[in-house]
Design a protein around this nucleic acid. Structure first.
Lengths: 184, 184
DNA sequence: GTCAGAACTGACCGATCGGACAGCTAGTGT
DNA sequence: ACACTAGCTGTCCGATCGGTCAGTTCTGAC
């Protein structure tokens, strides 16, 4: 609808992200995306080889950063990895709110390219939980880590209305609390 | 595939739940469900008036209990509502692991019937967050409540492998921690 | 001007899906 | 023996979707 001066490729990408967030990957047709930017479906498929490629291009930046965070945490000793993990995940969830919501709502559809496009993304969830658990395998620590992870994702994806700095601060404090740590 | 002695209606419901969890609502066709129990698609549509009715019947029990919990919490003073809210949500997420995962993964599709079938389900999420926040509207409390809620859902839906009692205990402790409370 | 290639499009196609419908079958009551 | 009904099925249909393709328009280099 709104036709800005940016390239069509980016317009389509932005429209797709908006629609994927609202109606999901399967709930959004190529025609929907094309209509939103006012071009033809054929033109959309000129810029992207197929539907999955759109999702891929949308999720690639987040995926890379998640992998990078995972690698960084692996070099840190347990206690520091917890703090760094929380900080990194808060940063990611705030910066990529919409992308992460899309990833969550469409894990089944994104699975194929997750393994294909980005190296080292298999089992990254498990490793992040491990890092947040401080390397512990005690049930309480594992559950707490899973809940902290889920909480951050949902808080980022949710309709919280507050300035970003306040959100980051609150998420960090809450996540550390969940993990049994006090801030600072 | 496995043809037990239970009624076809319940078999179809169970198969649908299994498939919805794995591939999502839109990712599962009526033919898929029928094939899984070994009957025809027409027979499936004899037992359920349409596809959404299956999702509705699957989500109705959870929806009712969520509404009931919401109503119960409304009668409690702030601090008690926090404890009761955590206890109730832990109970729900553990008892309805799969249903809640389906609800989460397909919120866009479930929206229609959420408002139609069950009375008092609109805005229940916001009210639950409010209860977990102890009635506070401070950003930190709201964020913590959102994260606690999300954490419980993800912990319930996730592939945690431990006995149920341990899971409940760990979830309760972690959620209360997230909310800045100590157990007991 | 003209030519090549990029950008873009309308028309079309095969596959899939949700759903409708008429009819078959087995069981039950009379 | 008969009628009636619940359970079930094969077949068909319209709609939708992802994707292809031949062809058109635009644009910049020469």
């Amino acid at each position: 609808m709104a036709r800005s001066s940016t390239g069509l490729h980016d317009q389509l990408l932005a429209a797709a992200l908006r629609l994927f967030v609202q109606h999901g990957f399967r709930g959004t047709s190529l025609a929907d995306i094309a209509a939103e930017v006012g071009c033809s479906k054929a033109s959309l498929l000129y810029h992207f080889s197929n539907k999955e490629a759109i999702l891929g291009e949308l999720l690639l930046p987040v995926g890379k950063e998640v992998v990078a965070l995972d690698a960084r945490l692996a070099t840190l000793p347990g206690e520091e990895a917890v703090r760094a993990g929380v900080a990194g995940l808060v940063d990611l969830t705030v910066r990529f709110r919409q992308e992460i919501k899309v990833l969550f709502d469409n894990m089944a559809d994104a699975t194929s390219l997750r393994e294909a496009d980005i190296e080292g993304l298999e089992g990254v969830g498990q490793r992040l939980v491990g890092a947040l658990a401080g390397g512990s395998s005690a049930p309480l620590d594992r559950v707490a880590a899973t809940m902290a992870l889920g909480g951050m994702f949902l808080a980022g994806a949710g309709p919280l209305e507050m300035d970003e700095e306040t959100l980051r601060e609150a998420m960090t404090v809450s996540a550390l609390r969940t993990l049994g740590r006090t801030p600072g």
